[in-house]
Amino acid sequence: MARKAMANKPNWRAIKIHRSYTVDETSRALGVCKPTVRRWLKSGKLAVIDSQRPALILGSELIAFLKARRKPKQRLRIDQCLCFSCKAPRSAAGRMAELVQASISTFNVCMLCETCERPIYRRYSARQIRALSEKLRVSASEAIRHLIETAHPCLNVHFETGGQDIGKAPSEE
C-alpha cells in the first residue's frame, strides 16, 4: 500500500461537521501524523468530546481549530513585491522599477529589495501601471526577443573541414 505524503497545510474541507473523529481518523483525513494530532489535543487548543478513550474530536471543533491556525493572507501595496530572501513584502530600493511588457495587457516589473538589494519581481496589468508610476519611477525596457521573432536569424553555417575551404561560406548551388 502506497503511503500518502504528509500535508504542509491540513485541509479543513476534508472534515465533516457532524461527525466525530478519533486521533487515527483525524490524522488520515488531514494527512498529518498521529503525534501531531495528539500535540494539538495536549495543548488544549483542540477539545475532545469527553475524557474517555478513544479520544473523540467533534468535526465542527476540528474545523474551527484548523481555521484559527491559518495565517491571514498578506495584501501587497501597489509599490511592493514579495522578497523571497527576506520572506516579507518589500518596497523598491531607490523608488525605481524596470518595466517589461509580457503581453498586450500585462507587464513584468523588476525592482531591487530595499533591505537585501536582490531583484524582486511582480506582474501588473496595464491599468495598474499608472498607479505604480505615481508611486515609483518606472523605466520601460524592451523585452528580450526570441530567435523566431528576429528579422535576421543567426547564420551558423557548418564549414567544410580541410584545406582552403576553412572560413569560407559554402557555395549556393
Rank of each mutant, 00 (worst) to 15 (best):
Tyr124Phe: 15
Gly44Ala: 12
Asp50His: 13
Cys83Arg: 01
Ala14Gln: 03
Leu76Ser: 02
Ile49Pro: 01
Arg75Tyr: 01
Lys9Glu: 13
His146Arg: 11
Trp40Tyr: 07
Gly59Tyr: 02
Ala68Thr: 08
Met1Glu: 04
Ser105Ile: 02
His18Lys: 07
Phe65Met: 07
Tyr21Leu: 12
Val32Pro: 04
Ala68Pro: 00
Phe65Tyr: 15
Met6Ile: 14
Phe84Asp: 12
Thr115Ile: 14
Val32Arg: 09
Arg123Tyr: 07
Leu76Ile: 10
Arg137Asn: 08
Glu160Trp: 05
Arg28Leu: 03
Lys9Leu: 14
Leu99Gln: 03
Lys87Arg: 04
Ser105Leu: 12
Pro153Tyr: 01
Glu117Cys: 09
His158Val: 15
Trp40Ile: 10
Leu46Tyr: 02
Ile49Lys: 02
Arg70Trp: 04
Ser171Val: 09
Glu172Asp: 06
Lys87Gly: 00
Arg95Ile: 12
Leu56Asp: 03
Ala2Tyr: 09
Glu25Arg: 12
Val138Glu: 00
Gly44Thr: 08
Val23Asp: 02
Leu112Tyr: 02
Glu173Leu: 08
Glu149Trp: 01
Glu134Trp: 02
Ser85Arg: 09
Ile166Trp: 12
Arg75Gln: 14
Ala88His: 03
Arg39His: 09
Val32His: 02
Arg39Pro: 01
Cys154Glu: 07
Leu62Phe: 11
Arg19Met: 11
Glu172Asn: 08
Lys9Phe: 10
Asn11Met: 03
Arg28Tyr: 01
Lys16Met: 03
Thr115Arg: 07
Ala92Glu: 01
Pro153Cys: 02
Asn108Cys: 05
Ser85Met: 10
Asp165Asn: 13
Gly94Met: 01
Gln74Lys: 11
Ile166Cys: 13
Asp24Tyr: 08
Ser133Lys: 14
Gln128Gly: 06
Lys135Met: 03
Val48Phe: 04
Val48Thr: 13
Ala140Asn: 00
Ala92Met: 06
Gln74Gly: 01
His158Asp: 06
Ala169Lys: 11
Ala102Lys: 12
Glu114Ser: 09
Arg118Asn: 11
Asn8Val: 08
Cys110Gly: 07
Gly44Cys: 09
Phe65Asn: 02
Ala88Glu: 08
Ala97Trp: 07
Ala143Gly: 10
Leu82Ser: 12
Ser141Trp: 00
Gln52His: 12
Arg90Asp: 00
Gln52Asn: 15
Cys116Ser: 01
Val138Lys: 00
Ile78Glu: 06
Gly44Trp: 10
Gly44Gln: 03
